[in-house]
Structure formats: structure tokens, C-alpha cells
């Protein structure tokens, strides 16, 4: 599966279009990670636990989008965008969407 965030796939020709596909995950805080983050809060700097959490949920959202595109018979997704929104206190959604296409 080719995934890009440009309108076209560089070096390839789009022959068929299947419409918008999307994937999302909602993630919440983790108590253990929160305690470490509380300590880190004094010194500042990177919150590694949260970075990992962000990476995992982003990968999962991408995977869900890819699965949906594969079901439609596409072999590429173009014009991918990431978006985040807060749904409740302490929880947020990572949403990824793009256009499923077939390339030569």
C-alpha cells in the first residue's frame, strides 16, 4: 500500500478512485505514565511515555485507514491528512483520512 499526502503519487498514474477512507483512535491518559509526567513537569523536557502513546495511536489510525482502503480494492491512498480533536477531558482523538485510489 502506497501512502502519500500529496494529490498524486509521484512517478505513478492513478487509474481508479474509490473515495475517502479514514481511520481514527481515541486515546486516554495512563496512570503510570501520568505519574512520570508529573515528575517531568518540574524539570520540563520530553514526555517519552506520551510520545510513545502518540506514535502507537497514530500507527493504529493509519492501519485502520489502510484496512478500509484494502477492502475497497485500492492499492494506494493519496492526499492523507492528520487531525486531532478533544472529545472529553483527558481523552483525544487522532483522525487520519485520505483518498483511496488504484495506481498502475
Amino acid at each position: 500500500m502506497f501512502i502519500t499526502n500529496t494529490e498524486t503519487l509521484p512517478g505513478k498514474t492513478i487509474i481508479d478512485c474509490f473515495g475517502v477512507v479514514s481511520g481514527s483512535t481515541v486515546r486516554a491518559k495512563h496512570v503510570g505514565r501520568d505519574i512520570m509526567a508529573g515528575l517531568k513537569n518540574v524539570f520540563g523536557g520530553e514526555l517519552r511515555g506520551y510520545t510513545e502513546l502518540l506514535n502507537e495511536s497514530r500507527d493504529q489510525a493509519l492501519q485502520r485507514m489502510t484496512d478500509q482502503a484494502a477492502q475497497l480494492g485500492a492499492n494506494a491512498i493519496v492526499n492523507v491528512r492528520f487531525s486531532t480533536s478533544s472529545v472529553a477531558a483527558g481523552a483525544a482523538e487522532i483522525y487520519v483520512y485520505g483518498t483511496a485510489v488504484r495506481v498502475e
Binding site: 512517478g11 523536557g45 520530553e46 510520545t51 502518540l54 506514535n55
Partner: peptide, 24 residues
């Protein structure tokens, strides 16, 4: 300008950074 394109892929990078107590 590219002579030949082998492949292209989506790449991402992310980070979560916190501010220190004094600055807050």
C-alpha cells in the same frame, strides 16, 4: 527535479514536550 522516482512514502515525526515548573 528528479531523474527517476523509485518510490514515495508517508513519513511522520512526533514529540510531546512539557514545560518546566519555573516557566509555568
Amino acid at each position: 527535479p528528479m531523474q527517476q522516482i523509485e518510490r514515495s512514502e508517508l513519513v511522520t515525526g512526533s514529540v510531546v514536550i512539557s514545560i518546566d515548573y519555573f516557566k509555568r
